[in-house]
């Protein structure tokens, strides 16, 4: 049924002759993964930005009289603390909401920094070719050989753990895929006719790179961005879990799991909840990236 419907839709497309934008919207409307991913990512982003509005309690206020209150669905839970409280009596839901700030902030910041580095190297290498390209490939081979998680751990800890350090270190260590994608595409595009046309009317290299080539890489870069953001979010959580990332009392999902680790046998939900949030966010970011790739892929005409 589905294939028949698709075939009919494709035929209709040809008759009506939709603009590329309309085509994309149509594809987006039928792409479940994209919709789910976009919904979750936008929700988490809003929650992160407006955390003080969403959080029912102050995530840092300790109440030792109310330690380890179970969540509302368990015996002894109440609507006062929907997800219960942690070992210091802090409201778990509020900490979870503030934790979204760290994950989203580090994920977005580090992915942006990596993007700037990788796209710049990729553009220059792909456009100039020759020696410069060889040097860039060599740099790439070296970066790929480095154990990035281990190096990130050491650098963050040595420099001094903070959100800024995490963003800079993770960003500097995650530019490879941007570079590979940008370089390959730039090499393909630079020999196209419209680029020669731009050059023949007197555009210089900088103009060609920024106004002719870069805008055409946008879709693919966004896809890499989402995949890298997912990786960086997991790395931040891992580092915080091991105690070399975000420092207490800041709420980070990795740190919450680390703090709950000693109690995981009799209070497993303290480990399950922040991990589930992490899983959901990373899954959504990946689905969003896959979705954008599917939607922006040029129409294959049979």
């Amino acid at each position: 049924m589905q294939t028949t419907a698709n075939a009919v839709a494709a035929m209709a497309d040809d008759i009506i002759d939709l603009t590329p934008k309309e085509r994309m919207i149509r594809k987006a409307k039928s792409h479940l993964g994209f919709q789910f991913g976009a919904f979750i990512v936008i929700s988490f982003a809003l929650i992160a930005i407006f955390a003080p509005l969403f959080a029912p309690h102050d995530p840092y206020v300790q109440d030792l009289a109310k330690r380890l209150v179970p969540p509302v669905w368990a015996e002894g839970g109440s609507w006062e603390h929907i997800l219960g409280t942690d070992h210091l009596g802090r409201d778990y839901l509020s900490r979870l909401i503030y934790g979204a700030r760290v994950s989203m902030g580090v994920g977005f910041g580090a992915a942006t920094l990596g993007c700037i580095i990788g796209v710049t190297i990729g553009l220059v290498a792909g456009y100039l070719g020759g020696r410069v390209d060889q040097a860039a490939s060599f740099l790439l081979t070296c970066q790929l050989a480095l154990p990035s998680l281990l190096l990130a751990m050491a650098l963050v800890f040595f420099v001094g753990s903070s959100v800024t350090t995490l963003i800079v270190v993770l960003g500097v260590l995650h530019w490879q895929y941007y570079m590979v994608v940008t370089r390959t595409l730039t090499r393909q595009i630079r020999s196209l006719e419209y680029v020669s046309a731009a050059r023949s009317i007197g555009s210089n290299d900088r103009q060609v790179l920024f106004y002719e080539i870069l805008p055409n890489l946008f879709n693919q870069i966004i896809v890499v961005f989402s995949l890298e953001m997912a990786v960086v979010i997991i790395h931040e959580a891992s580092l915080s879990f091991l105690g070399v990332g975000v420092q207490p009392p800041t709420a980070s999902w990795g740190l919450m799991i680390a703090e709950a680790k000693t109690m995981m046998y009799f209070k497993p939900y303290l480990v399950v909840i922040p991990g589930a949030a992490l899983f959901l966010l990373v899954l959504a970011v990946n689905l969003l990236g896959d979705g954008i790739r599917d939607i922006t892929a040029p129409e294959s005409r049979n």
Partner: peptide, 21 residues
């Protein structure tokens, strides 16, 4: 897709809770 989104350390802890305890 799901396996890609599961953080290693968390998966480990969940397995410890389930299969160890």
């Amino acid at each position: 897709t799901a396996a890609q989104a599961v953080p290693n350390f968390w998966f480990g802890l969940i397995l410890i809770i389930l299969l160890g305890v």
